[in-house]
Amino acid sequence: MKKNTILFTMITFLLIGIITIGSSFSDNDFAIDQENNPLTAPHFDENESKAAFDKMMTVLEHKRCVNCHPSGAIPRQGEDSHLHNFDVKRGEAGQGLAAYSCNTCHSDQNNDYSGVPGAPHWSLAPEEMAWEGKTRIEIATQMMDSKRNGGRSHEDIMHHLTEHELVLWAWNPGVDAEGNPREKPPVPKDEYIQAVKQWIELGAVIPSE
């Protein structure tokens, strides 16, 4: 159980992400080198940052991500983001309930026989990290709020957003119950990864609109 909790905290953090600009500059464990510090970087470009932000958020706002960042107790599913069949509940740890956890049906990889999607650590983002119904600015602001993200460093987050299997599952979403491929985010994986890195390297600035 303890192992699960640690795992869960890790995943949560992977999924939501990124610490705030406000805290990042004074944060000791924020250890990007001075050359890339947006305040001193000679090539900082607001438009470039915004473009990277938009590209990243186009992915994070996609149903492959938002379906598991629901605003209520029930996750969403499918291309139309309907409430998860059978109204399955998030449970206390975002992993479902006693007799009916996420892992009752979802395993560590997509199942082409059942059409049930899967990836390591399949679970829901906690309620305070709900993205459902929020604008990209709200989602990003929430991601940057140290009170809601566990106070993680930019670098850690960058790694997690760009390397973790559950996040990257979005580009390998498998087939549905009818055998039809699930829709992938509209930005190719490598472009997304590049955008996340770029945006963070440029200071993780959330545009004002």
Partner: peptide
């Protein structure tokens, strides 16, 4: 010890 739906368990 955990409930699993075996039709979707590799």
């Amino acid at each position: 010890g955990n409930a699993v739906r075996s039709c979707s368990f590799p």
